[in-house]
Amino acid sequence: MAGKMLFNWLFGGVGLILTFLVSSSHNLFITSLIRSLIAFVIWFLLAFAIRWMLGLSKADPVSLEERASGSEEAEKGLRVDLTTPDEQEAINDMLKPSGTKASENSQGTAAFEPLKPPRLVKTADRDPEELAKAVRHLTED
Rank of each mutant, 00 (worst) to 15 (best):
Ala49Val: 13
Ser63Ile: 06
Gly15Glu: 08
Ala68Ile: 08
Ala39Trp: 00
Asp81Ala: 01
Ser63His: 09
Asp60Gln: 14
Leu95Asp: 08
Leu120Asn: 04
Ile34Cys: 05
Glu73Lys: 07
Asp60Lys: 15
Gly13Leu: 08
Asp81Ser: 03
Val121Thr: 10
Ile42Cys: 04
Glu73Leu: 05
Leu56Ala: 11
Leu54Tyr: 10
Pro85Ile: 02
Glu72Phe: 06
Ser71Glu: 05
Ser103Asp: 14
Val41Arg: 00
Phe48Trp: 10
Phe48Ile: 07
Phe29His: 10
Ala102Leu: 11
Arg79Ala: 03
Ser23Lys: 01
Ile17Tyr: 09
Ile34Ala: 11
Gly77Ser: 00
Glu73Val: 08
Val80Met: 03
Arg79Trp: 04
Ser32Cys: 03
Trp43Ser: 14
Gly70Ser: 03
Ala59Met: 12
Leu56Glu: 09
Met5Trp: 10
Asp93Pro: 02
Thr19Asp: 00
Leu45Asp: 06
Phe29Gly: 04
Lys4Tyr: 14
Leu33Asn: 07
Leu6Arg: 05
Glu113Phe: 08
Thr31Gln: 07
Asp81Gly: 03
Val62Trp: 02
Glu113Ser: 12
Phe11Asn: 11
Leu6Phe: 13
Glu73Trp: 05
Leu64Tyr: 04
Leu28Ile: 01
Gly77Phe: 00
Ala49Gly: 13
Met53Trp: 15
Glu72Lys: 13
Val22Arg: 00
Val62Ser: 00
Thr109Leu: 15
Leu6Glu: 03
